[in-house]
Every structure is written in C-alpha cells, then in structure tokens.
C-alpha cells in the first residue's frame, strides 16, 4: 500500500505538532510540517505532496499564495485551507483557485480527516 504525503503549514507550532501526530495515527499517512509558507514552498519544489493543509493567515506568504503555487506545480494536489475568521472574499478567491476544502477555527480533526480521506485517491 502506497503512502500519502501530507504537508501541514501553520505558524502555530502546537497546531503543526498535534495535526502531525493525529494524522500519523492513520494508516498510510506521512506528514511533514512547516511554520511558514516560504520554507514549505521550498520543500514543495523538492517533493510532491498529495495533500497540503495550510493556515490562511500567516506572516510573509499567506495561505492563498501557497494554494496558487501548489496548483501551479501540482494541479492534482488537493489543498485544504484553515482560517480563523470566515471571510467570504477569501473563501471565493480560494474556490476560484480550486481549493479542496475550507475549515474555520476551531477545527474538528475528525472532519478534517474525513475531508482528507475523500480528497485522496
């Protein structure tokens, strides 16, 4: 059984750590996490990921930019966006860029996992 590579980007370290730990409980998920968009995009250039979970509001490169870059590099990679405040403009923009799913904080990990499962082939 092939492994799925999942990339998590969030400027809160605890979020990265917990999501990584939780997702790694599932069979076949290999998770990497980054605290900012710049480092994550560097890593994306080196390696293809099957799934990217990114926070929207971050210092420097924000979630929308991550989404755009991912879609340019790997159009088939699904991106899930997490945002602290549900902003309709952001949501519409993300949908235009073909976001897979959109989660407001506080997130339900069960729902997140469900969404990831659906996105992966």
């Amino acid at each position: 059984m092939s492994k799925y590579n999942i990339l998590i980007i969030d400027d809160e370290k605890i979020v990265c750590d917990m999501m990584k730990l939780s997702l790694e409980q599932e069979e076949g998920y290999e998770v990497e996490s980054f605290l900012n968009g710049t480092e994550a995009l560097e890593r994306l250039k080196e390696k293809k990921f099957d799934m990217v979970v990114t926070d929207f509001k971050m210092k420097g490169i924000d979630g929308l930019e991550v989404l755009r870059t991912v879609k340019q590099l790997y159009p088939k990679t699904a991106v899930i966006m997490i945002t602290a405040f549900a902003n309709l403009d952001v949501a519409i923009e993300a949908l235009r860029e073909d976001v897979h799913d959109f989660f407001p904080k506080p997130i339900k990990i069960k729902d997140l996992k469900e969404s990831i499962r659906k996105a992966l082939p």
Binding site: V15, S22, A84, P106, I107
Partner: peptide, 21 residues
Amino acid sequence: AHELNNPLNNIAIIAQTYSEV
C-alpha cells in the same frame, strides 16, 4: 476575538489529538 481564536483552536486540537492517542 481573533487572537483568542488561536489558543482556543490550539486547545481544541490538543484535546482531540489527546483523546485519539
């Protein structure tokens, strides 16, 4: 309100992960 959201979200994630593991 937005600032509170982050630690609250963190606590939620910690709690959910904790119960899983």
